[in-house]
Structures are given as C-alpha cells and as structure tokens.
Write a protein that binds this DNA or RNA. Structure first.
Lengths: 228, 228, 228, 228
DNA sequence: GATGAATGAGAGTTCATTCAT
DNA sequence: AATGAATGAACTCTCATTCAT
C-alpha cells in the first residue's frame, strides 16, 4: 500500500467511524474521542482532515447528499415518463436512502438545521437562504453560515419533487387544491417522517417501491371510497 | 400569600421559565442556570421540585400533553359527526397545538425519544412499549424507562386519529389501499412536519382549521384531477 | 466560619494560588490545573468566580495595580515637596512594588500587552487608547479590548511621574534637552528594567529609597565629573 | 543550481520565514506550521536542519547577535575617541538594531531567558553563568542550558558599554555616584525599553544617532537646569 | 425550606515532534 | 534527501448535580 492509498485509507476509516458514531449517538452526544477510537487513529489526524466536529459531520452528510442527488436526478429527469411514475421514482429513491441513513438525516433535519432551537430558513429575494429566529437573536454570522449549509442540502433534495409537481400543475394534472406551495415539500417531509418513525417490525417488509406507489396513490386519488 | 400559595408560585415560575428556555434552546443546549435565572429562584429549589433536567422537561411536556388530550378527545369523541368532520377537528386541534409548541414537540419527537440515536419503541404483546436499538446495545434499564415515557405520550396523542380511522374502515368509508396500519400515524406525523418546517412568511396566514380541511381533503379525495 | 467568610476564603485561596502560579510560570505556561491544585478547589469554582484565564490574571494585577496607585498618589500629590523629592518618592514606591511583583509585572508589560507580538497602544484623539499592529492585522475587536485594558493599567501607572515632570518643565527646573515627551516614560521604564534584570546578589542589598535617590540624581545632575 | 546551493537556499528560506513568523507572533504563539508554509518546505526539513523550535529560534537570534557584535565592536574599540563619543556610537548601533528587531529582542529578553518565569542568571566564580530561581526548583539541567545560552548572548551585548564605562571610571571621567556596578547595564536596558515601548507616531522620526546623543547627554550631564 | 457555592468528569481543539516513504 | 501524515498529551472551558448552611 503506497502513501496515497494509506492516506485515503485513514480518511476512509475516519469517515466510516464518523458515520457509525453519529448514527448511534446523534450529533451532540457523539464525541470525537469515540470516533477516533473506532477509527483507530489520533485526534490530530481527524482535525487535520476535517477541521472541526461540525465540518466532520457536514463532510459526511454532504457526501451522502451528493449520491442521493445523482440518483434522484436520474429518475426525475426522464421526461418520457408521466407525473405519477416520476413521483413514484423519486420517492422510491428517497425512501431507500432514508432507510439507510435514518438517524443521520434526522440529525440533519432537526439538530443541524437548529430547527429544534427555533431557527428556520427563509428564501431571500435573490434566491438564497437566510436564517430567521422565532424568538430572540440570531447567532453570530459565522455560525449562521454553518447552519444554513444544512438547510441548503435539504432544499436541494426537495427540488426534484417540486419540479415534477410544478410540471403536473402546468399539465393540469392536479386539481385546484393542489395550488398550495407547500404541498410538494410536505410529501417529501411526510415520507421522511414515515421512515423516521417506522418500527422495525412492520415497515421494513414492504419494499421502497411498493411503499412509494401507495403513498403517491393516496396523495393522487385519495383514501376515500366515495367521490367528493 | 400563605405557605402553600408561595410554594405553588415558585413551582409555576420555574415551569414558565422552563418552557421559555427549552423553547428557545432545545434540550441539550438549554442550561439549568438559565432556567433558574429566569425563574428568579435557586438551583436547589428546582432540583427539589423536579429531580433532574430530564424530569423537568417531562413535567413540562406532560402537562401540555394533558391539555392537548382533553381538547383532542372533545372533538374525537363526538359520534354524531362523520369521519371527515372528526378528522378535520382533530387535526385542527393538533395544528393549533403544534404552532404554539413547535420547538418543544420537535425536541420531544426527536431528541427525547432518542429517535435521533437509533432507538425506536415497539409494542409488546401485552400492549405496552419496549425500546429497540437499531444498532448495538440498549442503555441501562432506568434510562430506557426515561425514554419510553416520551414514546407513551406520543402514542397517546396519535390514538384519537387511529380510532377515527378505524371507524372509517369499519364503515367502509375508505378504499382498500387504506388498510396499511401506518397511515393514521402518517397523517399525524405529516402534519407535524408541516408545522415544524413552516417558514414564518407563508403558512401562518392560513388558519389551523382551513389547513386541516385541505390536508384531509387531499388525503381523502386526492390531488389528481382525473379518476384513477 | 460562616457562608460569606467561606466564600471569601475560596476566592482568596484562588487568588493566592493564581499569584503563585503566574509568578513562577508566566502567563502562557501557567495552567488552570496547577492553580486549582494549589488552591485546593475545583475548576468550576475558579471559572465561576473569574470567567476565564485572562480575566483571572487581570483581576490579580488589577488589584495590585490599585494598591500601587494609592501609594503613588500619596507621594506624588504632596505639592509642598520639590520636584526631586517627589520623583524620589514615586520611584521608591515603584521600585518597592516591582521587587515584590517582578515576574507579574514583566508578564503584564510584555506578554499581556502583546508587545511581544508586535502590537502597541497609541493615544486616540479623545484621550483613549487604540491598538496598532507593527505588521499585518489586528486581532478581533473583543481580543483587542482584552489587550488594551492592560495598556490602560500601565498608562495610569506612568502618569504620576509624567505629572511631576511636567511641573518641572513649568518651573523651569529642567534644561532644554528635557523637552522630549518620552523622558518621563523612560525613567519609569528604565527603573522597571533595573528591577526585572537585577541579579539576586547585588541589588537587593540597596534599599528602594537609596536606589531611587541615585537614579534621580543621575537623571538630574548626570554622571559626568565635568561640566558639559 | 547545484546540490550545495539548493541546500543553502532551503536553509535560507526557512531562516527568513522564521524571522517573519517569530517577529509577528512572539515565541509561544508562533507555530512551526506557519513557518514551513511561509518557507514553502516540509516539516521534516526544518527539523533536520534545526532540531527543535527552540534551536530554530536560537539559530535566528544568534546570527543576528553576531552581526550586532561586529558593529558594536567596530565603534567601541576605537580608542582614539572619547568616552562620550564611544557611548553615543554604541547606543546608536544598539538603537538601530533594536528598531529592526524589536519583537525578536523582546522575546529574547523576557520569554527565552525565562525572566518571565522567575529565573535569573548569576555569574559564577569562574566567570560563567548559572541559573537561579526566585522560587522553587530549577528545571532539568538540559533545559537550564537552553535558557542560559540566551543569557550569554545578552551578557555579551552589554559588555561593550560596560567596558567603555569602566574606562571612564579609570579616567576619572565620572563622579563618585557612578561607582555602582549596574549603571552600565541600566543604560543598555533603558534604551531597550525606550525602543520596545515606542509608539509609532513620535519616536521613529528621530534618527538613532540623535536619540543616542540625547540619552548620553542626559546620563552624563543631567536634566536639571541648576547645579546640584 | 430555600439556597447557590462547589464540584469534576468530560468536552472540543491545538501543535511540537516523529518517522515511514 | 525531503517530505508531511500521524500522533496524543495537554490545553481551556462547561454544566448537571450535590449538600452544607
């Protein structure tokens, strides 16, 4: 094994340990000590590669995010397919992904976005994101930026569904109720909730695709036997 | 003010401060010091009444939970009303409640249930709840019990919807897709997500009832213009 | 010993330990661990009372500074005495003080003012002090303020000499060479150097007053046997 | 460029970077990482040539010290000149040198001699130097030696003034007050203080020679208008 | 009964030095 | 010969909990 390979190996071992530890402890409860013990390396090495605990987490989820986006785009971009088919495709990818990264994405959604501290991200005029506090003051700018980058990941992950959804509106595929802006976002998040709160014994048996089909069917055609 | 009143006053002041601090910091970032400063009392007093930081949080959410349950039951129990009407009623209460307690219930759902550490609660044969770990070991029994009590709160809050939903199944109000067990739970959680991730500028304007009506309509009759 | 006394006792023990440790290690090399071990207390106690290592040091020297200023003013303010007598008085106090606090005041002069990192303090138009960097950038504002407070201590300590000196100029006590502004400051600092670099065996034997007299004589009447 | 030249080039680049970094950070705050980044070389190279951070600093100041000594000796050794002229000459060199190396020599005087940790150097019977601790124990012998070498540099730098001064005593150039041994040292150090604490706006304008002349005049003939 | 001073384990981070390549 | 990845001891600081008054 040459130098380059060894270096990659170290980085990789840290990355693997990082995933394991954050997945079993969340962010705040995870300790750098546990990570380096698992990676069998020194603290200095970790900090040389990743700079800070927050950067370490960001690097991990950022990488996973990129893989997710590639998969999502491959199913979302196929204009041959109809609205329903595309929705099912995107949700299948999303469910699959969340099942593999349940804890990490919970941590990302609630802990890292500081949604659980009363901050939310709102769009600015020029299409960017800005942090907003439900009460009191915002943190220092540098910390705001650290928080916002997680919001940006999520925003990008929601976009494929939003786009298909808007195509559906243009096609008059949807009824007038559908005009509310948050519906696309809501499908995305409702699925996340489904996976976050699944209990091991019932949900796992259903394949991601089957689940996605059902969810889309319910959203599109409803649960009711009767006509509205 | 007599002794009893004075004691109540102290407890109340701590409770109010507790809500304020956990609501703006989440659980991990909240400090007991900030709470007692706001309550203008001593640390010993707080620990005398509430025992631990975790018990303090539990007491707070437990109290709010009880208020929520009373409201939910008052709209869920009315057998005169139809399925749709009852669903709208429950969700209206739920949305209203979450809007007032957004951060607290996020913390409850993800931080306190340790859902963000890979634990989930599964039903036991005798109708109770048991903790299960996605990986590795469970924490000591005492800590498990502390975690489980939060799961019990959530389970109880979901029940009214589940009951209405099961009534719908008995009435043949729903189509066969609806047979999946998690659907009731999913409506409940999807609404939570909607409120957790609202951004201040758009959602607030819609009344809780209007929002509930739309959500139920979509669930029941679907988004699609066309027949399935 | 009652509660108040005990509290004072703890604070005092920390203060004493602080002086001992900073006096034998300087600032950077001193560790909080050594201080608490010597004070026989916990880390939390130290941080509760003093907030940070820097604040701890500042509290210590600030206290000593106040004692020094009282003594200086008592000898500098006596308008009955002549210029020479007053100079001798101030320098006696200064030498005495420095002998007792040699290391602390070295640390103050060089380490804490960051003079040893190329920063100096210059007077602003409104009589305050501003930090200036010989090269490159200044540190963040908050850190600048921490540095400046040490400069302010020193500036105040120099002032009594400056005042006597200016009185001398008004009285035409000095010759025209004396017009340079920095001369008062220089006497003050030269004495500091004398004490900082004394070697135990020779200087200590001379009393502070005797030393002060000699220094003043040399400054006033010169070393030379001959007339200029 | 051949091998020898390349090696020299590397050494030189490290030396230049060393000066830059220690000059803007002092010793404790300087990092080897910053030095090698500036020198555009590897850490191993630096440690190969210089052995340790302390040795690196010593090599730097030692080199500058040698240049200083050559200049000092060239003005101190000229027996043609009178006492006053020689003093002015030495101080001119010394002021010039300090202005160019203000931070480095501050670090040398206070940080490296561990004067700021309560150690001082005293002469031994055989003319050497020995470390002495104001309180407590001395460090291990090896570290003592590292500290002493900085004292030796300073002692050597003071010597030219001492020699001129002793010539003055032999010539009966000085009055009886001047017999105190530390006076030569004090002139030397007072000048250092003057440069260390100059503030950019006033002192720089005066040439080193002008300043030296004034200092010597004051020392020799005094500040007072009146005869003693 | 109410208090808050005292605690100390444990957190994230830095950096001089080594040594295999 | 030159490198820079790897190290880990040591640093400052936090905070839930206790218990003497």
């Amino acid at each position: 094994m040459n130098k380059k390979e060894k270096e990659l190996d170290k980085r990789n071992r840290i990355m693997v340990a990082t995933e394991a530890v954050f997945s079993r402890r969340g962010y705040a409860q995870a300790t750098v000590d546990e990570i380096i013990a698992l990676a069998d390396t020194g603290k200095g090495t970790l900090y040389k590669y990743f700079g800070s605990k927050d950067d370490l987490f960001y690097t991990l989820v950022s990488q996973k995010h990129n893989e997710l986006m590639i998969q999502m785009q491959s199913v979302a971009g196929d204009v041959q397919k109809g609205i329903e088919e595309r929705l099912v495709g995107i949700l299948t990818v999303w469910i699959d992904f969340l099942r593999k990264n349940t804890v990490l994405w919970q941590v990302l959604c609630f802990e890292m976005t500081c949604s659980n501290r009363g901050y939310s991200a709102v769009e600015t005029e020029n299409g960017g994101l800005r942090l907003e506090a439900r009460w009191g003051d915002l943190p220092p700018l540098e910390e705001q930026e650290n928080i916002l980058r997680y919001h940006r990941l999520l925003e990008e992950e929601i976009r494929p569904i939003t786009e298909v959804y808007q195509a559906g509106i243009r096609n008059r595929f949807f009824n007038e109720i559908a005009s509310h802006d948050d519906i696309a976002k809501n499908i995305f998040l409702a699925v996340a909730m489904l996976v976050f709160f699944h209990t091991t014994n019932n949900l796992e048996k259903v394949s991601a695709e089957e689940l996605a089909k059902n969810i889309v069917k319910i959203r599109l055609y409803g649960l009711s036997e009767k006509e509205q």
